[in-house]
Design a protein around this nucleic acid. Structure first.
Lengths: 122, 122
DNA sequence: CGGGATCCTTGAAGATACTG
DNA sequence: CAGTATCTTCAAGGATCCCG
């Protein structure tokens, strides 16, 4: 891969597509929670905390569409729906966790840089 | 790290902070381009293509604030400004590239899943 | 050339209410 | 319980003009 010509437009779109899913507000959180096993809707909602049911639904639909999670409906009363990572979803977890680890390890440096910047530019 | 209790709220915020920067529309692209060496404003703009100067400015300011790039002004006429990755920026490149590689390697599986989903749910 | 300032459009996200 | 439907808000992003 020669410098100055990273990835033209084909791979570029691919990265953008994945990134626009991964980069949204809740996806990573949901994937991380599902990383430890299947969970039902309300369980996810309670675990995540600040999320509205609409956003959780939307996020899960997106993940399902992209093949990252499966949705299993139990036709009981009251209804019950389980969400579980697919193989693809599990594999996604690897680079996502790498980024998450990096974030945790470097957040202090970022915050310091931010403080410096904000002070200087006043 | 015990399952069901991934990362409470402290690390969670850290990840969110980094992710909200990494996850925005242009940041990753800019970082990737700067990965092959310093570039000036107009050079970045031309390379990236679809970006407006406002968004490039905004993105670069954000990256500068977080300590990922440095901004060097040459007081010439016409003015010239170079942007370059800092050490922190270079380190960020590692997990970002991992995610980018994963995206390129799996985009087909995602697109297939998407087609299946869209067909089925009609 | 490298922006700053402004206006405008859109879509993401939240709140609320209702349903099988 | 697990959604769907609707309305509203708000900020990201784009277009345009101007300036040192």
């Amino acid at each position: 891969m020669k410098p100055g010509h990273i990835f033209p437009t084909e791979d570029c779109r691919a990265v953008s597509e994945v990134l626009s899913r991964v980069g949204d507000k809740w996806t990573v959180l949901v994937v991380q929670y599902l990383g430890s096993g299947p969970m039902r809707f309300s369980e996810l909602k309670r675990s995540i905390g600040g999320i509205s049911q609409k956003m959780l639904t939307t996020t899960l639909r997106g993940l399902e569409r992209d093949g990252f999670v499966t949705r299993t409906v139990f036709p009981t009363i009251p209804p019950r729906v389980d969400y579980e990572l697919t193989q693809l979803g599990q594999e996604l977890l690897t680079p996502v966790r790498a980024l998450g680890d990096w974030a945790r390890n470097n957040i202090i440096r970022i915050r310091e840089a931010r403080e410096r910047f904000d002070v200087t530019s006043v």
